[in-house]
Design a protein around this nucleic acid. Structure first.
Lengths: 230, 230
DNA sequence: TGGTAGTTTGAACGGCGGTTCAGCTTTCGC
DNA sequence: GCGAAAGCTGAACCGCCGTTCAAACTACCA
């Protein structure tokens, strides 16, 4: 039908990736179409060929990074069995491997933008349920002595991490790197009533795929992916 | 010296108040000089007579609201004796009487603006130390059984409140009004090892002054304060 | 080779909004 | 009153940036 293979499944993620990078650097308010275009290696109007407007790009870019992070974490989660380990992975990945800048921009935009609010709600709820599931599993397996409602424990942990992340992201000197992790793990253990086991070293098999997911915002630069799949 | 009494101590707070109101409504990114001017009852260039630039207004406005809130809370704090009561007041006022919108805007701006970052740091630290002081006092008075470091407990409480506030401010259906309060109080009691006593009814004397502080962002509208103090 | 649809570009448009400026009004000291 | 400084205003200026548009380019197919 089309004399040339369509490449929207290539271009659109490229643009969204470039956009989320620029947003992290400049902030959503200061992000210009020209910035995204430069980062993506094209120019202004090309972006508007793929998206209806600048606003549309920003809206999608905001949750694009979160999705990648969620998928990467979920994949690592599958390799762990015990609720304690899985819980530690959830906490440590959000502390160590995640750039909260984009998330904070999403918060602020959600104050007035319904679309952003809906996206945030969905992402946040999914994350909280991930935690809740582990709490429940740990309780049923007898690993976590707490008798608190899993839903309550999950809410507290999730909110605490959010709050800690703000301080850490804003470089509060009272929250140097490592303190966030220590506090998050510490409180979680206190809430659950049991220590969280250290994570096993990632196997070499895991490292093989790690270059395609080195951080949620990592993107192929330039044109290296820019050809039809055939 | 001056043929007419200078009124900068009147005008500047008026403008800053108007600015913070507009910021709450429209967000810092969408706030225009004309909006602030309209709210303050003047017009564009008048603002630039009192401030160097739009950016200068926004910068000051961001912490203006926080300062008012802090002062109001400090005043109420003086009327309470027991650390448990004082702690409850700290938590409840930040949950019930505070509009976190401005604070979230300050976070986002602090990501790239050094001035905002410094202001935020100062305000946040002051707040955390307020909590820490009560924790310590309660421990020494034997009211709080916990043996955790006050500084640690304070950090956790402050961060948790931040995180809860985000959910509540963004109208997360899982955090309806009241749940944030219940969780914040609950966790604090859990951390301290003792229940926080209910606050006594505010005396009628307190209510007398309440119209000048009905919320941290409340401002005299129109010109009612617009005359020299003499 | 020429046609076609997909994709990109340079240039130009147009509105929004911060800032400037030249005067006007107001208030007060003399 | 009168002059001077403080405070304010309307109008104009001007740069920035999102968007549009017509034309070019590219890859594929007949």
């Amino acid at each position: 039908m089309s004399p040339r293979p369509q490449i929207d499944h290539i271009r659109r993620p490229q643009i969204l990736g470039a956009a989320s990078e620029v947003i992290v650097e400049r902030g959503i308010a200061a992000t210009r179409i020209a910035d995204i275009a430069e980062r993506a290696g094209t120019s202004g109007p090309a972006l508007l060929y793929w998206f209806d407007s600048k606003d549309a790009i920003l809206a999608e870019a905001l949750s694009y990074g979160e999705e990648s992070f969620y998928e990467a974490t979920t994949r690592r989660l599958e390799q762990l069995e015990r609720p304690g380990e899985r819980m530690r992975l959830l906490i440590e990945s959000s502390v160590d491997d995640y750039d909260w800048t984009l998330w904070m921009e999403l918060w602020t935009r959600s104050l007035r933008d319904e679309g952003a609010a809906a996206a945030r709600l969905k992402l946040d709820r999914r994350w909280r349920q991930e935690i809740e599931r582990e709490v429940r599993a740990g309780q049923q397996a007898g690993e976590f002595p707490t008798e608190d409602a899993p839903e309550r424990v999950a809410a507290i942990i999730a909110c605490l991490i959010d709050g800690l992340a703000v301080q850490a992201t804003l470089r509060d000197p009272e929250f140097p790197p490592g303190r966030m992790r220590e506090l998050a793990i510490g409180i979680t253990e206190q809430l659950l009533g049991a220590p969280l086991p250290e994570l096993p070293e990632p196997s070499s098999k895991d490292l093989e795929t790690s270059n395609e997911e080195s951080g949620p915002l990592a993107l192929a630069e330039g044109e290296q992916n820019d050809r039809p799949p055939g």
